[in-house]
Amino acid sequence: MSTVFSEEQRDCLQELINVAMGLASDKLARFLNTFVHIQVPAIELVNSAQIPAQFEAQYSSAEAALVSQGFLGNDGLRGEAIVLYQLENAHRIAALLGYDTDNASELEMLTDISSILTTTFLNGLAEQIDNSLSYSAPRVLSSRQNNMTEALIETACHWELALRVDISYQLIHHSFNCDMLLLIPGEAVLNIQQILDRIVEEY
C-alpha cells in the first residue's frame, strides 16, 4: 500500500483543506460574532510514529492540552482529529467566548472550541467531496494533570498516517495557536487517494 501522495494529489488535498478552513473560519466568526481570522494552514503528511517527537518540544510543558474527536464518513473515510493547545491564553479566550468561569470548566471550553473547529472544518472538507461525516464526542486526552507526550504516543500508535494541519487563529486582538492533527488509518489513506484522483480527473 502506498502512502506516498503524488504531486497532484497533494495539491488537490491542500486546496480542499484551504477551502474547508476558510468555511470553518467564516462560520466561527459569524457564530462568535467577533472577528476570527484563521490563517491558511500548512499541511504536512507525516508518519504517525513521528508525531510524538514532533510535538514534544512544543507541548511538553504542563500548560498544554490535547482533545480528540473521531470521525466517520462514507467510502471508508475515517480517522481521529486531534487538537493540541497551549493553555496560556485559555482563560482569556474563555472570557471572550462568553464563558462564565464559574459555571463552565476550562475543559468544557476546550472541548467546545475543539469540537467547533474540528466539525466545521471536516464538514467543509466532506462537503467538497460529496461526503458527510458523523462524529464521536470530543474527549480530553491530556491536560494539566496528565502527560501529554504519553497520551500522544498512545494515540499515534493506532494510526499509520497523520495529516498535520498547523492552524493558528486570531481572535480580536489575541492570537491563539493550536495544531490540528488528522490521524488516518492505512486503508482510509487509500480511499482518500482514490477520492483525490477522482477530483483531479474531474477537472
Binding site: V19, M21, G22, A29, Q128
Partner: peptide, 25 residues
C-alpha cells in the same frame, strides 16, 4: 476567488479595487 471569505477580507479587497469576491469552491 478566495477560501478566506470573512467580511473583513471582502471589504479590504473591494477597497483595493476588486470588482467582485467569490468564495471557494
Amino acid at each position: 476567488i478566495s477560501a478566506d471569505i470573512q467580511p473583513e477580507m471582502q471589504k479590504r479587497v473591494t477597497e483595493l479595487g476588486a470588482l467582485a469576491f467569490i468564495h471557494k469552491p
